[in-house]
Amino acid sequence: MEIPLQHYLVFAAVLFSIGAFGILTRRNIIGILISIELILNAVNINLVAFSKYTSISPETGQIFAIFIITMAAAAVAVGLAIVISIYRVSKTVFTDEMDLLKW
């Protein structure tokens, strides 16, 4: 008896909402980055579940998920480089203290 598709989709939707909550409420930039990772993982689960249950070519979802994992790694690398560079200049990593561009 396999797990029905809707259970995977609900799990992914819950992870997505929790990730969105994290992006909206975290003060630390690295906290926002790790919430973005949650959202990307939820998307990966969705893709693989759909391609297994409903698609004609079931490897499409997994290929897409591999590309998303790679892109997420690249995004996190560049994002963290920016965070470290900002920390070196202004000694803070909290988003509400970075207001040099505010008018």
């Binding site: 797990i3 995977y8 690295i30 980055l33 790790i34 990772e37 993982n41 990966n44 689960i45 693989v48 579940a49 297994k52 997994q62 998920a65 591999i66 994992i69 790679t70 997420a72 790694a73 996190v76 690398a77 963290l80 965070v83 470290i84």
Partner: peptide, 28 residues
């Protein structure tokens, strides 16, 4: 992913996310 019979993707996820991206995040 393993329960969705995508074992290769599960191992790639562990290798890249848990092995490398977590290292980056924890370093930062």
């Amino acid at each position: 992913f393993i329960s969705l019979q995508a074992e290769f993707l599960a191992m790639v996820q562990i290798l890249i996310y848990v092995g490398a991206v977590m290292t980056l995040i924890i370093f930062a």
